[in-house]
């Protein structure tokens, strides 16, 4: 689906991406992580054909720079910062649907699922929406059409918990259709539950490429012991859903996690980082 070879991009004398190679097959759901200035946004802009670059990028065999319309027809993009568009919401929906050859009703339906009523906001300028509403509309515009590559830059940053849940559901639906997802985030825990590959960039180079479920035996299990510093009902509910049981004092929890789910499990735990006093994970063989 995506093939990147020897990608280089600089601004003036500063090289932001230095000879990056990457292959993403259909169905890959990638968390693109890295600190500020690591090259995440630059890589995304190269993939969108917005930057001039050295090396080669192919999306479905096509160059995003030379065949940008063909490539961008496959792409749903959610930017990190919503653009300050003055056009009313209704016009933006029509514009996106028209250029992408989609039905505006599909975008409206996705927005509705995310909790944004387009009809109520139809005449309101996009720029006047709240941060969360803007994010919902941009996500709806990306997901409300037929795409096989989703590129999202910190997509869930402004969403309320309910919308976040729906957003993950929508992505899971896309996942079933073998779409490639590239989700850029500063925080792995945000996207851990969604992805099956983690790529970390640092100074324009891949420093970690973890194909989570490739390296893990699908039948393996990890025995886990989690210690917390005080009992907490929300934590109990969360680990309870993973089938963990508590010691009588409620400070130690034990259970097992399927190997391929380890990233998702760690993502869940990271929400309670302040509570954690200890964590042990051991290979427990085949389950």
């Amino acid at each position: 689906m995506i093939s990147i070879q020897g990608l280089r991009k600089g601004f003036g004398k500063r090289e932001v991406i230095q000879g990056l190679d990457l292959e993403l097959e259909p169905g890959r759901r990638v968390a693109l992580i890295g600190s500020n200035g690591a090259g995440k946004t630059t890589l995304i802009r190269c993939l969108l054909g917005e930057y001039h670059f050295g090396g080669e990028i192919r999306v479905d065999g096509k160059c995003p720079r030379k065949q940008r319309c063909e490539v961008l027809r496959l792409v749903g993009f959610v930017p990190q910062l919503p653009p300050p568009l003055k056009m009313p919401v209704g016009q933006l929906v029509r514009f996106v649907a028209d250029v992408a050859g989609s039905d505006p009703a599909r975008i409206v339906a996705v927005a509705h699922r995310l909790g944004l009523n387009i009809d109520q906001n139809r005449h309101q300028p996009f720029v006047r929406l709240s941060g969360g509403q803007k994010q919902k509309l941009l996500i709806a515009a990306a997901l409300g059409r037929d795409t096989s590559l989703l590129i999202m830059d910190e997509p869930a940053a402004n969403l309320d918990p309910e919308a976040r849940g729906v957003f993950f559901e929508l992505l899971a639906e896309k996942r079933d259709k073998e779409a490639v997802m590239l989700i850029s985030s500063h925080r792995l825990d945000e996207v851990a539950t969604l992805v099956n590959r983690v790529i970390e960039l640092d100074q324009g180079q891949v420093v970690l490429d973890d194909k989570v479920d490739d390296h893990v035996d699908l039948n393996s299990r990890l025995a886990c012991r989690v210690r917390i510093n005080r009992p907490e009902a929300a934590f109990a509910r969360a680990v309870g859903q993973w089938g963990f049981t508590a010691a009588p004092d409620g400070l130690q929890w034990e259970g097992s996690v399927a190997g391929p789910d380890r990233l998702r499990f760690l993502g869940m735990l990271s929400r309670y980082a302040g509570l954690l006093a200890g964590l042990e994970m051991k290979d427990a063989g085949h389950g």
């Binding site: 930017p79 919503p82 300050p84 568009l85 996106v96 250029v99 992408a100």
Partner: peptide, 15 residues
């Protein structure tokens, strides 16, 4: 400068 190009030119409209 404000990012309008980044978004609108990610849509399949020819340059």
């Amino acid at each position: 400068e404000s990012g309008v190009f980044e978004y609108l030119l990610s849509l399949p409209v020819s340059l």
